[in-house]
Write a protein that binds this DNA or RNA. Structure first.
Lengths: 216, 216
DNA sequence: TAGATTGTTAATCGATTAACAATC
DNA sequence: TAGATTGTTAATCGATTAACAATC
């Protein structure tokens, strides 16, 4: 099978497709078309069909797409059925918020354990997730081999922790520290949630909108 | 002045530039070049110069760029000196994490007040931010006219709250609910932090990396 | 001055859009 | 069958890269 390159733009649209399929099914709509999908997401129908055709042919000419089947395809492509497990490193505010408010399993990922360096935090359970002392992390990683580590530590601790994670076989880091972890020589996947970048973009858009209004 | 269109890609790179200028200055480096910048960010020098030239000419031929001056230009473009204010709507886990761990003022935004519907939460201060009952929100908005609302409520409350914010003159919503707030007819700026989209992209990359390794 | 590096135009590349034959 | 809508190729558009004159 020839592996064609999938652009980042396409990858970032896949979760959007997934969400609207869930919404369609919740509304009892089991059949859709590239036109309907494009309309819901503000894309063109062409683009929707091109995106899907990166991975195969999921529709039927003259009919459209079966929502459930297409949903299952996209879920598969996203790796939602691989049974990935994740550990949380840092159970402070943001870590707590992730455990309590974010439904990992909804996206096919099982959060198995949290770790924190503060003995006032470790030892307890949060919503059924046990928080272990950070010292136990390397051993846990070697024994349980989770694919994903969620890094939710203060900035300062980010880099050394990332190295420890990589040394112990973690495949991907979901990075909530506002620190860049780019270690080009390391073949680890880093997905950043940079709040500041997002807020600054918002600030730019506000500024641009105000300036263009002033000009009129 | 002719307003040229700035692509989203360029806008998303501006905060990255800002961050490395801060890093350079922290290391006592006060002069840089498009080559150095591109190297630090994994771009091409051409692209860096093109990006800056969207907004004007900030460098000196034969010399390069003064880091502090360039930093100030980018900060201005991003609206960091406009004195924007923000209110937090929802002081649950994620709201707490934002108040306690995220430094709004570092990015030129002043968080002035938080609001929550839970009387056990409202009435207190968190890190110097007063939490008011949610009922006081409309009046506060009309009186104080903050540009930005940070929406950190449960999914269910997202849409009606967004409408209330828009009705009361908020210009931009920083959206931490995992709900899409696209109201095309409303001229409000929405910047989403969608954790699930990010995790799913990470899951895709893990899957792609595993499959390509298996194939070899 | 010579060397360096910008600002900017031109060339290339890749992504989006349009078009349409295939076919359900 | 006729109508609809896909899968896929071709055309267009926009973003990135290359090149180089301007100039510090």
């Amino acid at each position: 099978m020839k592996k064609k390159h999938i652009s980042n733009n396409v990858i970032r649209r896949l979760p959007k497709y997934l969400h609207i399929f869930d919404k369609l099914m919740a509304n009892g709509i089991f059949r859709t078309s590239s036109y309907q999908i494009s309309d819901l997401l503000g894309l063109t129908a062409s683009q929707v069909r091109q995106d899907f055709n990166c991975f195969g042919a999921f529709g039927q000419q003259g009919y459209g797409y079966d929502v459930a089947a297409l949903r299952a395809q996209i879920a598969d492509i996203l790796g939602m059925n691989r049974g990935y497990t994740a550990v949380l490193v840092g159970a402070g505010n943001i870590g707590h918020a992730l455990i309590e408010d974010f439904n990992f399993s909804e996206w096919g990922v099982t959060l198995t354990r949290a770790f924190d360096g503060d003995p006032h935090i470790s030892g307890k359970d949060i919503c059924g997730i046990h928080v272990s002392p950070i010292e136990e992390l390397p051993n846990y990683l070697r024994t349980n081999r989770p694919e994903i580590a969620v890094l939710a530590l203060p900035k300062e601790a980010a880099k050394p922790s990332a190295e420890l994670l990589i040394e112990n076989g973690v495949k991907a880091i979901w990075n909530f520290t506002n620190e860049d972890l780019v270690e080009p020589e390391n073949p680890v996947i880093v997905e950043n949630i940079h709040f500041s970048d997002s807020l600054l973009a918002l600030s730019y858009f506000v500024t641009a909108a105000m300036d263009s209004k002033k000009k009129k």
